[in-house]
Amino acid sequence: MNIFRFLGDLSHLVSIWLLLHKMTTSKSCTGISFKTQALYALVFATRYLDLLYGSWHSMYNVAMKIFFIGSSLYILYLIKVPFKPTRDPAIDTFKLEYLVGGALIMSLIANYEYSFPEILWSFSIWLEAVAILPQLFIIQRTGEAENITTHYVAALGAYRGLYIPNWLYRYFAEGFFDPIAVIAGIIQTVIYLDFFYIYFTKVLKGQKFELP
């Protein structure tokens, strides 16, 4: 564990807290992509259910995995049950087939071993890299976003962004190098760059997140 990875994980926790805060205080999921949330639930299920076959690294690791699986299911429940009337499916139209299909193909090409657990792990990594796209698509379509929603997306982007200095640190300090995680992680971070540009130039200067 190093400071970058710890801050990244912390940022991930903050993002989930922001999302839950937005939904429970406004009693709505307006502007939130159910599709992105469903993809994250799938990402966590395919990566973290390695708990079931004994992949226990530390209490920290196990507790985080359980939290991410549990909170993602709870978020899906909130969107689908109590806040269902506030969701507009007509703007959440990104085609999931392409993302899931692409991640599946990548997991068969790029994995560390042709075994079920390793392919599942690789699938979850590639799927996570693109899971935010339906959410960014909603923001692009509507041309704006509530500030709290942009803080959520920013915290999520910071999470994977912070993993990059973590990988640099681990490469030099520990000789650890995980090329699949690194390449997918860089792709994931690049996907956020456009968003971050507007977030830093507008939202953090007190303006509303609006596309030109």
């Binding site: 990875r5 994980d9 991930h12 390695d50 992949s55 690294h57 530390s58 690791n61 985080m64 995995k65 991410f68 560390y112 071993e113 390793e118 792990w121 993993y163 973590n166 650890f176 190098f177 995980d178 995680a181």
Partner: peptide
């Protein structure tokens, strides 16, 4: 066998 990282990251 495997060059797999230990997958100790989240």
């Amino acid at each position: 066998s495997t060059m797999s990282a230990d997958h100790d990251e989240l």
